[in-house]
């Protein structure tokens, strides 16, 4: 300690300190901004994957996204969107898009797992972006903490029970019940279409894991009260009481007031 404090008085100390401070802030800043990219290693992708993916891309995606994924007026540039984005969009069948509409819809998946992997490899090679999450980030979180994060950040669009909801002009936030943890994670880090991006500096990877744990738990739990009527809230309940409840009661009243033969 003493040695250090003596050296601090050295004329060069001020400069050294300044340099160190700059380095630390810069380093921290760099870490913070590249926190998503940190896992965007292409290490799991082989050169062959990238090459095959490039061929698939040229054949299936380049019409809209341009050769080399540079974008055109029909589709955005894919430089830097990362493997997670490809895995989400292609893996849920949203891409390739069937037609232009308010938003890309979930469809039967067009590519097999290997082809999706190759496409992801190719797009990831165009520029660093969020990577496909590891399995450890998808399960084993704290459901209660995830519930709080979900209600604050997600429920306004996706509904508190993840049953989906409407957005403006024909767009909508889908229900999340049958979506895999991996795709939920990828959607959060990439912000597909009109969904905001929830980068790791907004919701930490642990927070995302908690959200996925929460969603999977309420999905497997089901409702303790019986059939959920789509988890759509009072509208579904009101329709049910008018149609089924009153319907059954009217049937009984007709029986009750009819004459026996």
């Amino acid at each position: 300690m003493k040695a250090l404090s003596q050296k601090r008085r050295h004329p060069l100390a001020a400069i050294a300190l300044l340099l160190m401070g700059l380095l630390i802030t810069g380093g921290l800043y760099a870490v913070a901004t590249t926190v998503n990219e940190a896992k965007a290693s292409t290490s799991t992708f082989s050169a062959n994957d990238v090459e095959e993916g490039g061929k698939l891309f040229a054949a299936n995606c380049a019409t809209c996204h341009g050769m080399g994924g540079s974008g055109s007026q029909d589709g955005p540039s894919l430089v830097g969107v990362g493997a997670a984005s490809v895995d989400f969009q292609v893996g849920t069948g949203r891409m390739p898009m069937q037609m232009n509409g308010p938003q890309a819809l979930e469809k039967p998946v067009q590519f097999n797992d290997q082809q999706t992997h190759q496409l992801a490899a190719y797009v990831a090679s165009l520029g660093a972006g969020p990577a496909i999450p590891e399995q450890s980030l998808l399960e084993g979180g704290d459901a209660a903490a995830g519930g709080e994060l979900f209600r604050t950040n997600c429920a306004m669009c996706h509904n508190a029970a993840a049953a989906g909801g409407a957005l403006t002009r024909g767009k909508f936030a889908p229900a999340l019940a049958d979506t895999s943890g991996k795709h939920i994670y990828e959607a959060m880090v990439t912000g597909p279409q009109n969904m905001p991006v929830f980068s790791d500096s907004n919701i930490t990877p642990e927070g995302k894991r908690d959200i996925i744990t929460f969603l999977k738990q309420i999905e497997t739990n089901g409702s303790p009260g019986g059939a959920e009527l789509g988890s759509l809230g009072p509208v579904a309940e009101g329709l049910f009481v008018w149609i089924a409840g009153l319907g059954v009661i009217i049937a009984f009243t007709i029986w009750l007031t009819s004459r026996t033969s």
């Binding site: 800043y29 912000g191 991006v197 500096s201």
Partner: peptide
Amino acid sequence: ARDPDGTPIKASDVTIGSAFH
């Protein structure tokens, strides 16, 4: 600060396209 945990937010945390509560 972030809702609900109350941790402060840096400008650099807010990437384009993101929304913080």
